[in-house]
């Protein structure tokens, strides 16, 4: 029973992290129908930023997430202006392939400058702290990151549903031309959406540095899982992404513990394929 609870908690904590990583991707996909293939590399950039802020200036990841969010907002906005805007609507998959090029560029740039070594930030506030919960151990850095995930997803959901900006974003997602006729500057909305997508992944990356090592290829698996989470949740649905991320986290931890550690990602991707074939537009898609 103790094992079961521990595996359950690990799965939920991982799932919430995946939800935070995937939220930005989901927003961009939902509004612009673009897959940002450099999403994992954005995460890596945020992790390096947070690592160096912690290593050189002694700023804890639970503060430097603000810097990570802002920096990745700018990186997202610049990416939109320079790459997405110019490839959108030109050919099928052009933005996807262009951002794949960007991901190669960023990954190999970091490989070249920072070497392929793993770097783990030490001396964080919450490092090694845990709380016991009914026979299971809950590591605090993961728990705080998971709570952040809830908060960020909540703010994002509230912003989309309750504010004028959110309504403008929804209108742009539904019908770009009609939104323009209503006086919405869709160009600005796209820029903001890409920036916000970057900010979400920036916050995720900064917080992750408190317990995960950073290396140039760290984004690969996370971006694949984010793609799967978003596709499983359904086109641009934030609650769908949250639910899908929890499902993926649980499948990962349970198959890893009860079958074998090596098959956990096989199980994750197999579950994804199984669900997507039954519901071709995801759990919450239409």
């Amino acid at each position: 029973m103790g094992n079961f609870l521990q595996v359950l908690i690990d799965g939920l904590l991982n799932g919430l992290l995946y939800a935070l990583v995937a939220a930005g991707l989901s927003l961009i996909w939902g509004v612009m129908d673009v897959i940002n293939f450099a999403h994992g590399e954005f995460l890596m950039v945020a992790m390096y930023l947070s690592y160096w802020l912690g290593f050189l200036l002694d700023i804890d990841p639970f503060i430097s997430w603000i810097a990570g969010g802002i920096f990745l907002f700018l990186l997202g906005a610049v990416t939109y202006r320079l790459i997405i805007k110019n490839s959108l609507g030109k050919a099928a998959m052009a933005p996807l392939l262009a951002t794949f090029g960007l991901s190669m560029l960023l990954k190999n740039f970091c490989m070249n400058v920072f070497t392929p070594n793993f770097r783990l930030l030490s001396g964080n506030w919450l490092e090694g702290r845990t709380i016991a919960f009914g026979g299971a151990i809950v590591p605090l850095p993961q728990l705080v990151t998971a709570l952040f995930a809830f908060a960020v997803l909540g703010v994002l959901y509230w912003m989309l549903k309750k504010t004028r900006l959110g309504w403008a974003i929804q209108a742009t997602a539904m019908d770009k031309e009609a939104a323009e006729l209503m006086g919405i500057d869709t160009e600005r909305i796209y820029l903001l959406v890409f920036g916000m997508g970057g900010a979400c992944v920036g916050i995720a990356g900064s917080l992750m540095t408190s317990y995960l090592a950073v290396y140039p290829e760290v984004g690969g698996l996370f971006s694949l899982i984010a793609f799967v989470v978003v596709a499983l949740g359904g086109f641009g649905s934030i609650p769908g992404a949250l639910l899908a991320a929890l499902l993926i986290g649980l499948v990962e931890s349970f198959s890893g513990f009860y079958i074998a550690a090596v098959v956990k990602y096989v199980a994750v991707f197999a579950v994804y394929l199984g669900v997507i074939l039954l519901r071709p537009r995801g759990l919450f898609g239409w």
Partner: peptide, 9 residues
């Protein structure tokens, strides 16, 4: 690979 990526973009 950086040059490769740039060409694709």
């Amino acid at each position: 690979l950086m040059i490769f990526g740039l060409i694709i973009i």
